[in-house]
Design a protein around this nucleic acid. Structure first.
Lengths: 193, 193
DNA sequence: GTAGTTCACATACCAACGGTATGTCAACGG
DNA sequence: CCGTTGACATACCGTTGGTATGTGAACTAC
């Protein structure tokens, strides 16, 4: 086994194990000892791959989760042709995707607290949040939504959906998803010109 | 000095010190040693007052902060007579109050991650979130707002304002507060019957 | 082919952390 | 005045994230 292959394999295993543990028990409750034990390596390997230690490892896991959510939202929204329908489909996709344990715990709960809000937000902009801002910009430019600055609107909607996702993940009742979507779509519909 | 007085004084000092430290550097970055040193006591005193240790101490601090924010929102909103104006005034009061460092860091960032979302939410319901739900309920029952379940709507708005508060605390630009309020009020106005 | 270098880790260790068990002494009640 | 309670202080422990150093296999140059 070549060195590059070995390197990739170890890094991937470290990521997979820590993601699972972080998702189930949270960042603070998981020790590096448990991570490296389940990954079959030692702390030396961990610090070789993630220079910043535990924080850096979490950062990489969060990036992975956000990337997945972003892709899911993008593909689901992309299936719609009408820009307005794209927005609604994207919101629905985000809410359903965020019910997953890993997303909830890593992306919504621990993410801001561990990395700080500004870095979390910067990473969020690279994921699903950017799709929301893009969709809103398109709608404003097309005259579908009343002209207004997109940035604060996107933040408000992003925060609303993040909180709703945390709520939905807890309740587990599928009827709640419909209730949230109804309320959300009512709010969105109000923005139409 | 009597025992009850001494007890109150020590507890208050512990709360004040930890609140300041938690607010400036965050829950994880503050050690118990530093807290008890600045409070002029020892760890024995801390665990005597807060059985649950560091978590319990944080819980008490969070309760204090939330109570303050709740009172501010309630009094500001209470100055308005019209129910709709009360809602708007309450939202504005919450956003301005949440720009404070302690509120931002303790209530919005560390709160959910340290205590878990469900407990954080339960405490939030005792603070400003309840006023929001109450105001919405009143408006729905009065027919000012289109009939709909209040719970999901309150969650969406609460999440939107929490995220907006984090954004505003970071930017510091007072123009951003107006931008957020404009967007928020536009969303709220859309809910009117 | 082989000597030298690099790289991907493993090992051993450390200071600091949250937490606990026990000791102490002043305030209180009778 | 004396026994009890309560509000701490002291001493200690296991574990944690982090680091400095060692090691052997994979690659490179000649």
């Amino acid at each position: 086994m070549g060195r590059v292959e070995q390197r990739e394999r170890t890094r991937a295993e470290l990521l997979a194990v820590s993601r699972r543990l972080f998702a189930t028990r949270g960042y603070a409750a998981v020790g590096l000892a448990e991570i490296v034990r389940e990954a079959g390596v030692t702390k030396g390997a961990l610090y070789h791959h993630f220079e910043g230690g535990k924080t850096d490892l979490f950062r990489a896991v969060l990036a992975q989760v956000q990337d997945e959510v972003g892709r899911t939202v993008a593909t689901t929204a992309g299936a719609e042709t009408d820009p307005w329908d794209r927005l609604l489909a994207g919101c629905r996709a985000f809410l359903t995707a965020s019910t997953d344990h890993a997303v909830r715990r890593i992306m919504l709960l621990d993410g801001p607290a561990v990395l700080g809000w500004s870095e979390w937000r910067a990473m969020d902009e690279g994921g699903s949040a950017r799709h929301l801002a893009d969709a809103l910009t398109t709608l404003v430019e097309a005259g579908v939504v009343v002209p207004q600055p997109v940035a604060p609107l996107a933040r408000l909607l992003s925060g609303a959906m993040n909180e709703a996702a945390l709520w939905l993940a807890e309740s587990g009742d599928p009827a709640d998803l419909d209730a949230v979507l109804t309320a959300l779509f009512r709010m969105l519909a109000a923005m139409r010109a």
